[in-house]
Simulated assay, not measured.
Amino acid sequence: MNINKLLAQEIANKVMQVIPYNVNIMDDIGRIIGSGDPERIDNYHQGATLAIEQGSIVSIYHTEGGAKPGVNIPIHFRNKIIGVIGISGDPQVVSPFAELVRVTAELLINQEFLFRERRIKEQMKEEFLYQWVFRNERYDEAFVNNGEVFGIDLTMERKAVVVKSNVNKNIPLYEQEFIFRLNPNLTLFIVPCQSEIVKRIEKSLENVEFKIGIGNPYTHVAASVHEAKRAIEMAEKLGMNQIHCDYKNLKFIDYLTNKDNSLTEMNNFYQELEENPKGRELLETLISYITNSGDMNAISKELHIHRNSLAYRLQKIEMLTNKNPKKFTDLFELFTCYVLYKMKSA
C-alpha cells in the first residue's frame, strides 16, 4: 500500500482540523506529497528521511538547511513504514499530539485500503459474472473454483429472465440472484429455478409497459440467456401482445425458423409412447383426433371407446406434453413433431 498525493493531502487536511499546526505528509522516500503549505509539495524532508532510516520518531529543534523544527512520525501499514507524518513547531509543544496524529493517519490509510480492496473485489466479481453469463464453453474446474470465491454455486440450475423496459427501478434480489444491465432497455436476471423474480418484477413495474423473456433452467446459464432474449424477439416479430414470453412455449416456433435447435423432449415422448402398449393407445388417439379434425363422436366411433375415455386420453396427452390437443397451435406442434420423429426414425 502506497500513499498517493490525493490521500496524503486528505490526511493533512483532516489532521489540521484537529491541531493548530502545519502538517506534512511524506512518502516512503521522504518526499512531501501532502501539506498545509502547498509550496513544500515535492520537496524532500530531512526529518522524514531520518525517521524512515531509524524507524522511530525524529524531533528537530532547530532550523537546519531545509528542515524546520517539528516532530516526524513513521506511518506503518502491516508492519511496514510507508511514509512519515510531520508536525511543524516546537517539539516540546507538538510532541503530545504525535500519537493522536499517527493513529488518525493510519486509520485513514487503512480505511482507504479497505475501500480500494473492496472496490477491486467488486470489479473482479462483476467481470466474472459477465464471463459466466456469456460463456459458451463448459465450466472447467478453475472456472467453478472462481465462482466459489465469489460465493456463486455454478452447479445450481438457474434460469435467465430478461426484462425489456426503459424504466430503471430497483428490483429486490435474494441470495444467489444476480442482475445485469445489457443495454438501457434490457435488463437480465439470473436466478435459481424456483425464484419468484417475475412476481417481484411485475410488482415493481406496475403501470409501466414491459415484456419479460424467460429461458429454460440450465446449469450452463448462457443457454438460458439466449433463450430468454430469443423469446422476446420471437414474440415481438409475431405480434404477440403477451407480457410473459416463456421460451418453452415458443421453442417449437424457434425450431421452425432455426433447424439447429432440437426437439429432443418431443422425440423422447413419442419414442416412449411407441415402446409402451398404453402409450400406443395415446398415440393412436392423437392421430385419430387429427385425422377426424377433433370430431369427438367420429373419434370415439373409430377407436371404439366412450367419449369419457377419449376425454381422459386427451387430458393424459396434455399432462405428459404440456400441450393441449384442443388448442390449434399446440395440436399443430404435436402433429409436426410426430411427423419429424417418424421421418427421423424411418
Rank of each mutant, 00 (worst) to 15 (best):
I75F: 04
V94I: 14
I85N: 12
T49V: 12
Q46D: 12
P74S: 01
L50C: 02
G66D: 08
G83V: 06
G47I: 14
A67I: 11
N72P: 04
E64L: 13
H62G: 03
V101S: 10
P69Y: 08
I87N: 12
G55R: 01
G55E: 00
K68C: 06
G89F: 11
G65F: 03
G86H: 08
I73M: 06
I75E: 02
F97V: 03
K80V: 01
G83Y: 05
R102K: 14
Q54C: 01
L50P: 02
P91N: 13
G47E: 12
L50I: 12
A98G: 14
G89A: 09
D90A: 10
I57H: 02
H62D: 11
V93N: 08
G66K: 08
V101K: 07
V71E: 03
Q92K: 14
S88P: 02
K80L: 00
S95V: 05
H62L: 10
I75W: 05
G83K: 03
P69Q: 04
I87V: 15
V93D: 11
S88K: 11
R78Q: 04
K68F: 13
N79D: 05
V58D: 02
K80W: 00
S95F: 15
V71M: 10
V94S: 13
P74C: 01
P91A: 14
D90R: 09
V71R: 05
A98C: 09
F97K: 05
Q92W: 06
I85V: 15
V58H: 06
G65P: 02
V94G: 11
G83P: 02
S59T: 14
S56M: 03
H62T: 11
D90P: 04
A98S: 15
A48Y: 08
N79C: 00
E99F: 13
R78F: 00
R102S: 09
G86M: 07
G55I: 00
S56T: 06
H76K: 00
Q46F: 13
D90K: 14
I81R: 01
P74L: 02
K68I: 15
A51R: 07
I82L: 01
G55Y: 03
Y61S: 14
S56N: 04
S95A: 14
P91S: 13
S95M: 15
G89W: 11
L100F: 15
T49A: 08
V101N: 10
H76F: 04
G65D: 01
R78D: 03
V84L: 06
E99M: 10
V101G: 07
S59H: 15
S88A: 12
P91R: 15
L50M: 11
A51H: 07
R78W: 01
G86T: 12
I87D: 05
G47Y: 15
Y61N: 13
E99V: 05
V94W: 06
E99C: 07
N72C: 11
S59I: 10
I52H: 00
I52F: 02
V71N: 07
I87C: 10
V93G: 07
A98K: 08
Q46W: 12
I75S: 03
A98D: 08
I57C: 03
R78N: 04
A98F: 10
